[in-house]
Design a protein around this nucleic acid. Structure first.
Lengths: 191, 191
DNA sequence: GTCTATAGCGAGATAGAC
DNA sequence: GTCTATCTCGCTATAGAC
């Protein structure tokens, strides 16, 4: 096992545990146990806990950028791409009901901690916002594309928060259906 | 200063700090310093940290029930009451941008901690849900009143999460305006 | 009812052997 | 690159004086 592989395994385990338990609640011992190394070995790969968080955020930024690039192709046209976006709520419904949205919950937690990586975590939100805005621009809504992007992002966040609180799968489906109808309506009716 | 007053001051300080910093991140020392007592004196009023959380949740349940009862009168009719509900996003916009929604962020945090009081915290959500559902029923939508209540609750949560992430006051106002339009549309168009 | 003092634990972090 | 051993700190919680 090379050092690089161990580092990546640490980041992946931390990524999962930060999502499931939260950043502050996840200890070095938790991550070490998940990876199968001792706590002491940790500091050969990371100087401090903050650095693991930064690596996890970078991993999520890369993963998000890759996913958006794939939707760019798979969605075909702007409306299809927007449907890809709302589709993640259904595809990830089990995880969302158990742990909420990984983007929103990390952003909220780091905000309360006043953590220095707070703004970096928000960049994940910004990736979605910019990508969604672009799709609405292509859909013929250049003037309020950003408002529409924020609206759709907000509705997705709200669905994740309440689905987590009430553990209601039917609620997710109903809201996703409503968002799909709304997306179809954006194209047909001008601002 | 009687014991009862000190206990109430502890609960009020904890309520504020749990909102601003999160439950897990708030230590006894933080609350004690805010109240102006020593840590040791704490255990005369509460046996454990969990008990303060329970007291804070009860305080918020009572405060929410009281607020909903006041809206029942101040709003006049169901539509006016729903407008009272979305109005809190504007009225509390500064706090929401700084710390998110007190209901949603506590619910999310306790979910990640798998805390035993998780369900009690969700009762605050349930108060809003039940109250909103009743207003939609009175508005002539008995069949989908709960769906409409969850929809409005979700949109509010999403607005709070994104307003906190992006610190965008204009976004809150735009979304609240959109929710007001949506509320007006609910009455005029049947399901 | 409030205080000081301290126990006990787990956290992040470091040193150094192998 | 991985380990064991250890340090220091802050936290929850307890004991007991006043």
């Amino acid at each position: 096992m090379t050092g690089k592989a161990t580092r990546e395994r640490i980041i992946e385990a931390a990524d999962r545990l930060f999502y499931q338990q939260g950043y502050e609640q996840t200890s070095f011992a938790d991550v070490a146990a998940a990876v199968g190394i001792t706590r002491g070995n940790f500091y050969h790969h990371f100087k401090a806990k903050d650095e693991i968080l930064d690596a996890v955020i970078q991993l999520r930024l890369d993963a998000t950028a890759g996913m958006l690039a794939r939707w760019e192709v798979a969605g075909g046209h702007p409306e299809g791409r927007l449907l890809c976006f709302v589709g993640i709520l259904v595809a990830n419904r089990a995880k969302i009901m158990a742990h909420g949205c990984p983007v929103g919950t990390l952003s909220t937690e780091l905000s309360k901690l006043e953590h220095r990586s707070r703004e970096d975590a928000n960049k994940i939100f910004l990736l979605f916002r910019t990508w969604l805005r672009r799709q609405f621009e292509l859909l013929g809504r250049p003037d309020d594309a950003d408002d529409l992007a924020m609206h759709l992002l907000a509705r997705s966040q709200g669905v994740a928060t309440l689905a987590n609180a009430f553990h209601d799968e039917g609620f997710i489906q109903k809201e996703v259906d409503a968002m799909r109808d709304w997306i179809k309506g954006v194209r047909t009716c001008l601002s």
